[in-house]
């Protein structure tokens, strides 16, 4: 588990907060419900991902993971903690 302060320090954010086109690296999961399924699909810590698009009505989202397009609901994406590349460069 990561608290808010830690998240700010390490440029951590959740996958659901990224905008289309933004890139990030998977850090960890904060919800056990979907973490296994997502990890099996290749969304493992250390993997580079980028948000491809967000569906109309803001949900679900489509993400590039190791060369393919994976779609998931915002709710699942909110459980994926990622390192925002842009924020990290700023730090």
């Amino acid at each position: 588990m990561v608290d808010a302060k830690q998240m700010a320090n390490k440029a951590l954010t959740t996958l659901s907060d990224l905008k289309p086109g933004e890139e990030a690296v998977v850090d960890s999961f904060c919800n056990e419900d979907v973490s296994l399924k997502l990890m099996e699909m290749g969304l493992v810590p250390g993997e580079r991902i980028s948000v491809e698009r967000i569906a109309p009505f803001g949900d679900p989202i489509a993400v590039w993971v190791s060369g393919y397009l994976l779609s998931m609901r915002k709710e699942s994406a909110a459980s994926v903690i990622v390192v925002d590349r842009k924020k990290k460069e700023q730090l």
Partner: peptide, 11 residues
Amino acid sequence: EKSHFILEMPV
């Protein structure tokens, strides 16, 4: 039971 939607979008 939690509901999910995790789907590959093929090329």
